[in-house]
Design a protein around this nucleic acid. Structure first.
Lengths: 245, 245
DNA sequence: CGTCTGGTTGATACGACTCAAATTTGGTGG
DNA sequence: CCACCAAATTTGAGTCGTATCAACCAGACG
């Protein structure tokens, strides 16, 4: 199967054989990060673009008194901050959720790729714009939705993102987040997340057990979450020809 | 005085005379938008990059039942979505808060600018990364801060951004937002915003009346908000040489 | 088999919401 | 310049969603 990044970029545009080969070669190094370890911390100088090859990670910010907000999740095929190296210091941290396989990409390598492959450059722009769109949707999520809608929305988003990189089918996917992670991502307490998950189970919208998620009826869950997929911008031409659904 | 955009980009890097001239010429057209009108709506196809020359605008998203979240404010010198034209449809709307003067920039014009002025290109990248950082901070804001901290934080952010484009000095600035706008931006109700503003006034952290904001002691307000300015990335080399403080 | 992390339950508290009405402000036309 | 109206702000009373605190339970693991 094609690597996650290729699948992800092809959600935006079709890539040629050459494009795909170039994308596959972008990350020469790969390293393992243990679960719950940080890849990089707030205040540090960003040097590489991190590409998630396997596992889940998160971007988070903390307040001086310890309150913590997860502001993004990363799944395979996601970059943590394209172009961050332009900034002088990280304003947030990136932490591993599960065991990670990460590719570190240098500025030079990225510049070379974009210089030679305009279609890939476009696709990378798209990925960066989609990440911004996701961040906006999260602001809407914590700002306006109820706990029930909020968690439902997050589950649908993650499911759909995993689906585009081939890691979710038929309503099933791995789900390594703890209720604490969900709490930090939704601005709720772990206790309330627990009770809300029970409600979602009671309503037969999800089954969640032992790090596996099952969504029996995605449309019903989307309705409950008021989920509008437009912000993921998966609407490229000829998408109806794609498989993977 | 230099136009807002130039001031803003120079918060990142020093620009040459040529760079500044090129930036000043980027928007050939300019049009007026009445307060409370939309520049562009969710679902529409983005064609131009909008540059705010005068006035305040906001980016917002709505849920089917009418709940509304403002996910960003724009002040003079801000772009609404650099590079959006890559996407097929808007996933949010942009609305005028006060009377706007807007520059519409075509894709071609932007491509020409970035092709010829690498320093400007860098600066535009920076501006786009800072906007993402602001969006993340907003997620933290609505997710973790109390109403009091949340409003304080927003006021500090807006003050600092206005300051970098020369529109705020000595703790004073224009402030065209209604309490309703503040509510939609912070995920609170207008009633609660009202009571919280009264608390902030009582604590002598702000004076806010007739669309003017005065912050008697910025450091005290920043403390109350747990405001850490790192996410605005204003820390370029030689910033201590700059005036405007 | 003990320890630990993650999940679950119960009781109570409080921050923010809702609804409804009054008051002030700002703009507009006569 | 005043009368009028709409928009924005303010106030009060009552309610509710979510937080807090404190146990307790269940697998996973060495």
């Amino acid at each position: 199967m094609a690597p996650a990044l290729t699948l992800r970029l092809q959600a935006f545009t079709r890539l040629s054989e050459d494009d795909r080969a170039a994308v596959a070669k972008i990350s020469k190094t790969r390293r393992v990060v243990a679960p719950r370890r940080d890849l990089i911390r707030e205040g540090e100088v960003p040097r590489y673009i991190h590409l998630i090859l396997e596992g889940w990670a998160c971007r988070y910010k903390t307040l001086p008194d310890g309150r913590r907000q997860i502001v993004a999740f990363f799944v395979p095929g996601d970059f943590c901050d394209l172009n961050v190296y332009i900034l002088k210091a990280m304003d947030h941290s990136i932490g591993a959720i599960s065991r990670l396989l990460v590719g570190d990409i240098s500025r030079d390598d990225m510049d070379k790729l974009t210089a030679d492959y305009p279609r890939v450059t476009q696709a990378l722009w798209w990925e960066s714009l989609v990440n911004s769109a996701i961040q906006r949707e999260w602001t809407l999520n914590v700002g306006q939705r109820t706990a029930y809608e909020r968690i439902a929305h997050l589950l649908v988003e993650l499911y759909m993102r995993l689906n585009t990189v081939g890691l979710a089918q038929n309503g099933n996917c791995d789900f390594p987040l703890t209720q604490n992670d969900l709490a930090d991502a939704t601005g709720l307490t772990a206790v309330h997340v627990n009770r809300t998950l029970q409600e979602l189970r009671r309503d037969k919208l999800i089954e969640l057990d032992r790090r596996r998620l099952h969504i029996p009826d995605l449309d019903k869950l989307m309705d409950a979450a008021m989920f509008n997929p437009n912000y993921l911008h998966l609407d490229h031409e000829g998408r109806h020809l794609d498989s993977n659904h």
